[in-house]
Write a protein that binds this DNA or RNA. Structure first.
Lengths: 344, 344
DNA sequence: CTGTTAGCGCCTTCAA
DNA sequence: TTGAAGGCGCTAACAG
């Protein structure tokens, strides 16, 4: 223990130690071209010996922008977000950025607080999966930070979006079920206030219409994308007089709850009920004969978001006043892939 | 888009706007006691109107310590760490700290890089699950930051540890299996270079000895705590001439791989093979008739780590030179709890 | 209660 | 190639 509370050594200390000026030290440390190789080496050696540790706060102060990237996700327990974090972490680390993780818990208020403190930290950029009812103040703050929306998007946020083609993903799943002869198909998805909730439900409705199957209100359930709601919705559907013969669960968290309800009632899958889930966490292939699902290109999406943000940050640094580089926003949505397994 | 690159409003601007001095503004903003309520309100109002956004870097500069907490975990895909993150996030947010997440990927080198940049950011504290071969430079750097080790610990790190009683946890699991009549019990755990790997294996060995069961080398497998190794080890064991009748899998990631190997060989559980896993991610209760496991008190551990760190930070702020407050390190290990389900 | 003054550590002109 | 001077935004010590 005993933290040695000696004051940190600064570039001035190094300068003094070497009998030169601090600006020279500063330049040497950053490999500034106009510095003699000799002095550069001497400086670096001295820095090492004295145990110099740069002060990123001070650097930020004189530069106006830090090397921090804020990541605002609803939570990290969700497999999608935690895997995304991994990719983002490695991509940004390589480029000298650090990630600050902020979890909104789907509360617009905590989301706002986070955005505020990220703004205070002068983060270089933000990657966000916004909450449904993003506050105006949040929008306002984000206006001054290069931002990229990932997976979810919010209408008020005028920034790049890296998204999935949710509708056609669900459409594919529906095709699959319909081909298998199902027509009483249920859908359990995220709230209609979330962009993903809306889009996935739309895909479901489209598919039904496309095949002339009437939409039954009781078979379309939307709510908070958490296990609890999945359990609830599935239980409800299973207690109907005429329950569905297949169900699409539009999120892995909902699936967790949905399956619990199914097991509780000892319903056999896929004999009595076919199932398609969204996303493909590791355990899906282990459950029974495997859960049929739509696999999302997580790594690619994360990488795309990172690159997009890096570009924006760069463009921003070059021509801070210029508002023209909107060419980046060619929002080509990513496609999910149907993985057929034992539940259908 | 169009980031408005107007220079940020500072306390000086507010001061000028109000015809007072910046220190007064600074104090008012921070609710300093010796400020007239009237001026405080005026300042806050002006700040709001002018769109003032504090600069945390500048604050850190004049205070020497930021409001950032570094969290260094091997990865966040692991359910244990992602759930811990959630708890830490909310605990620290409430107290005005921000979390910087750094994933080491179990590489001592990236771990070092992260520690270095956290040190450069003058983080207020660090919570870490160290890699097996933590570098000396890392130890050196951490010496000057309040640090708490969580779950894993490293001998060179002289700081608080929040840990689990790994040995007795495994012992409980072994008791359970032995009671059920098993004596050929396999163990698949993390590498012997990890503290958790060592302790859990020790628990296994202890239990065997305690019951006069000879230790068979082939039934004790340790390696990287990832699905791939779990798969490998389980496959090996199942191909033995005399395979075990029960296996303890000492991590949820290993379990993922282990179960895959089991399913591939169509071994029936628990008839042909009993199983106990470590940790209790949500899907364990859904697999078959549920996976028997040791549930870890994640939230409590995370909360304890947070409190411990906060105390250290506080103590550190009060008496920076004093080396005496080691009383905090009463390392009472947490206990895991056996959850009996269908695999035993 | 409030203003003055003086840094925190670094970077960036401008000169030399 | 290097040094001198000034400022980034904020807090703190000391006056008043």
């Amino acid at each position: 223990m005993r933290n040695e509370h000696v004051k940190d050594v600064t570039i001035k200390d190094i300068a003094q130690h070497l009998g030169i000026s601090h600006p020279t030290v500063s330049r040497a440390l950053r490999d500034h071209p106009s510095i003699r190789a000799e002095t550069r080496l001497a400086v670096k050696e001295a820095a090492r010996q004295l145990g110099y540790i740069a002060n990123s706060g001070a650097r930020t102060l004189s530069r106006t922008r830090s090397e921090l990237i804020g990541v605002i996700f609803p939570d990290v327990q969700n497999d999608f977000y935690s895997r995304t974090m991994s990719t983002l972490a490695s991509m940004f680390l390589e480029r000298g950025f650090k990630l600050v993780l902020a979890t909104s818990e789907d509360s617009a208020e905590t989301e706002f607080k986070h955005i505020q403190s990220l703004r205070e930290a002068r983060v270089a950029g933000v990657i966000i999966a916004p909450t449904a009812n993003l506050k105006n103040e949040s929008v306002e703050l984000l206006r001054s930070i290069p931002t990229v929306q990932l997976l979810r998007s919010h209408p008020l946020l005028e920034c790049s979006i890296i998204k999935l083609d949710e509708r056609s993903g669900i459409a594919t799943a529906m095709e699959h079920l319909i081909e298998k002869g199902h027509s009483r198909i249920g859908f359990i998805g995220g709230s209609g206030t979330l962009s993903t909730g809306v889009d996935r439900a739309a895909g479901y409705i489209d598919a039904l219409q496309g095949h002339g199957i009437p939409l039954m209100r009781a078979l379309l359930r939307q709510g908070p994308p958490r296990p609890h709601f999945g359990y609830q919705a599935m239980s409800d559907m299973l207690s109907m007089k005429a329950p569905p013969s297949a169900v699409v669960m539009a999120s892995s968290e909902l699936t967790l709850g949905g399956i619990e309800a199914i097991q509780e009632r000892k319903i056999s899958v896929p004999a009595d009920l076919a199932l398609i889930a969204y996303h493909d966490p590791a355990w899906f292939k282990l459950w029974g004969a495997g859960i049929t699902c739509l696999r999302l290109p997580i790594e690619q999406m994360a990488a795309a978001a990172a690159m997009r943000l890096l570009n924006q940050i760069l463009a921003d640094a070059k021509s801070p006043m210029c508002a023209g580089s909107e060419t980046l926003d060619a929002d080509t949505p990513f496609a999910s892939q149907l993985v057929v397994r034992g539940t259908t």
